[in-house]
Amino acid sequence: MIVFVRFNSSHGFPVEVDSDTSIFQLKEVVAKRQGVPADQLRVIFAGKELRNDWTVQNCDLDQQSIVHIVQRPWRKGQEMNATGGDDPRNAAGGCEREPQSLTRVDLSSSVLPGDSVGLAVILHTDSRKDSPPAGSPAGRSIYNSFYVYCKGPCQRVQPGKLRVQCSTCRQATLTLTQGPSCWDDVLIPNRMSGECQSPHCPGTSAEFFFKCGAHPTSDKETSVALHLIATNSRNITCITCTDVRSPVLVFQCNSRHVICLDCFHLYCVTRLNDRQFVHDPQLGYSLPCVAGCPNSLIKELHHFRILGEEQYNRYQQYGAEECVLQMGGVLCPRPGCGAGLLPEPDQRKVTCEGGNGLGCGFAFCRECKEAYHEGECSAVFEASGTTTQAYRVDERAAEQARWEAASKETIKKTTKPCPRCHVPVEKNGGCMHMKCPQPQCRLEWCWNCGCEWNRVCMGDHWFDV
């Protein structure tokens, strides 16, 4: 396979590697080409510095992935760790964990309700045991953590790749202090920090972006993250068709209702045909949960890209028209025109101005929308079919299609509260000796007794199943 190397943020060049090629071997190839010592090179990928003893497969490097290699003399205490030698983080029983690669970060837990604080980093599902597709590297999971809308060759929703760059020099040479644990960490600028490894760059702020994971991409090709779309790892039924499908869209209502993408497309087109989208002054033209839940309008309007190009163009047109109407304007009634106009409040005669090729020149009556006339309008008909009709959803289907309910059931079956801080902690095999993952707590306690870890627990039921 081919990976592209950008040395000291210059133009990239291809390097041929195998899945079992080590990072140090990659350094040696680059060092020979650039005429520099291999031990002064640092390989940066997806916000993480890659260790010498890791392989291309370990690092989730795919065909035509772009890695950054910078030349920086080692500072005291760094060289041993980078070589894969006596790194205290690798000691058996050590409590410190390697910062998780962005290629394996899962933010789907952050669609849980606000009262489930902490689960994004504490609760991990076991539903990723799908067998890898044919042709994928051994052991590589097909679980997708992110979804994007690819405006490039795909023109559809695709699995996405999370990447990070330095907000100062805009190069992907920043190593994160810690990985993101929720969508806010990724979507809110300057929320996460790190250290830029580019020479002479003092940058410390992280800037995240997404790429389409279905095809090789260049540095400049980015895609918009659709953070309401998630892999259906909890096997929730769709609120409309009641099938279990994946991926799904999880509405931001209190129940976190789930809808499959085909039904979401149908829901949007139906509402669009009836012009029953909601115009929100802050958000724009949007839709609420299909069950009509309060405070559930979709905030990231790129989710409506699921409509496809033709329907999305209609959505944008109707949204612009609705904006004009909300501002007190009118639409030209001549067939084939429909231009938005903003006449004076007491102006009865409205002319669709033909300047700049935008208007048709038609003069019409503001009251009856017919060709302009003197005197009273002959008839004014009330528009028919403008009443909002509820999208029919079966109550039982709505009850079963809740992301929140599956989460709470998982928590109930696989977790116990920490005796000190009461945060839910998952036990997935292993011994009875637990350690609270909350940095402010870190209590060592017994899963069996529910009390602080002691010699009695150690001698009596340390390794009970």
Rank of each mutant, 00 (worst) to 15 (best):
V3C: 05
V5D: 04
F7V: 03
V15H: 01
D18M: 10
T21G: 06
S22V: 03
S22A: 06
F24S: 11
Q25I: 02
Q25F: 04
L26A: 00
L26C: 01
V29S: 08
K32Y: 13
Q34R: 08
A38G: 05
V43P: 00
I44K: 01
A46W: 05
E49C: 02
L50Y: 01
L50H: 00
D53Q: 07
W54N: 05
Q57K: 12
N58W: 05
C59D: 01
L61R: 01
Q63N: 15
I66R: 04
I66D: 03
V67T: 01
V70Y: 04
Q71N: 06
P73R: 06
W74C: 13
W74H: 12
K76H: 14
G77F: 13
Q78N: 12
E79D: 13
G85C: 12
D86E: 13
D86R: 10
D87A: 10
P88F: 05
R89C: 13
A91G: 12
A92F: 12
E98M: 09
S101H: 09
L102V: 11
T103V: 08
D106Y: 04
L107W: 10
S108T: 10
D115F: 04
S116N: 14
G118R: 08
L119S: 15
A120G: 15
A120V: 04
L123G: 15
D126P: 10
R128I: 11
P132K: 10
P133N: 10
G139L: 12
R140W: 11
N144F: 06
S145C: 09
Y147W: 13
V148K: 00
C150R: 00
K151T: 14
K151R: 14
G152T: 11
P153H: 11
C154M: 00
V157Y: 07
V157P: 06
Q158D: 00
K161P: 00
R163F: 15
T168A: 08
L174V: 12
T177N: 13
T177E: 14
T177M: 11
S181V: 08
W183C: 01
L187E: 05
L187N: 06
L187W: 03
R191E: 05
S198A: 10
P199T: 10
H200V: 09
H200C: 09
P202I: 09
G203Q: 03
G203L: 02
S205R: 10
E207Q: 09
F209W: 09
K211C: 14
C212Q: 02
T217I: 08
S218F: 10
D219W: 06
K220A: 13
L226C: 08
L226I: 03
N232G: 01
S233N: 14
S233V: 11
T237C: 10
I239S: 05
T240G: 14
T240K: 08
T240D: 04
V244F: 04
R245N: 06
R245Y: 04
P247T: 06
L249E: 00
L249P: 01
F251N: 03
R256Y: 05
H257S: 01
I259M: 09
T270V: 12
R271L: 07
R271G: 06
D280G: 06
L283D: 07
L287D: 00
P288N: 08
A291T: 05
A291S: 08
G292Q: 08
G292M: 06
C293R: 01
N295P: 00
K299V: 05
L301P: 09
H303N: 02
H303R: 00
F304E: 01
R305L: 08
R305Y: 06
G308A: 05
E309P: 15
E310C: 06
Q311C: 05
Q311R: 03
Y312G: 03
N313E: 09
Y315A: 04
Q316M: 12
Q316F: 07
A320F: 10
A320G: 10
E321L: 07
E322L: 04
E322S: 05
Q326S: 11
G328L: 03
V330D: 04
L331T: 05
L331M: 05
C332M: 02
R334C: 04
G336T: 07
A339S: 12
L342G: 04
P343E: 05
Q347W: 06
R348V: 07
K349Y: 02
T351R: 15
T351H: 08
C352P: 02
E353I: 08
G354H: 09
G357M: 14
G361Y: 11
F362T: 07
A363N: 15
F364K: 03
C365W: 02
C365M: 02
E367S: 07
C368W: 02
E370P: 02
Y372P: 11
E376M: 10
E376Q: 14
E376F: 08
E376L: 09
C377I: 02
S378H: 11
F381S: 07
S384Q: 08
Q389W: 08
Q389T: 15
D394P: 06
E395S: 09
E395W: 09
A397V: 12
E399H: 11
R402H: 06
E404T: 10
A405L: 12
A405Q: 09
A406S: 14
S407L: 08
E409G: 06
T410W: 09
T414M: 09
T415F: 11
P417E: 14
P419W: 03
R420M: 14
V425Y: 07
E426N: 11
E426Q: 11
K427E: 06
K427S: 08
N428W: 09
G430A: 15
M432F: 05
H433K: 05
K435V: 15
Q438Y: 04
Q440E: 14
C441G: 02
C446Q: 01
W447E: 09
W447F: 08
W447A: 07
G450Y: 03
G450L: 02
E452Q: 15
E452G: 15
W453L: 03
V456I: 15
H461G: 01
D464P: 01
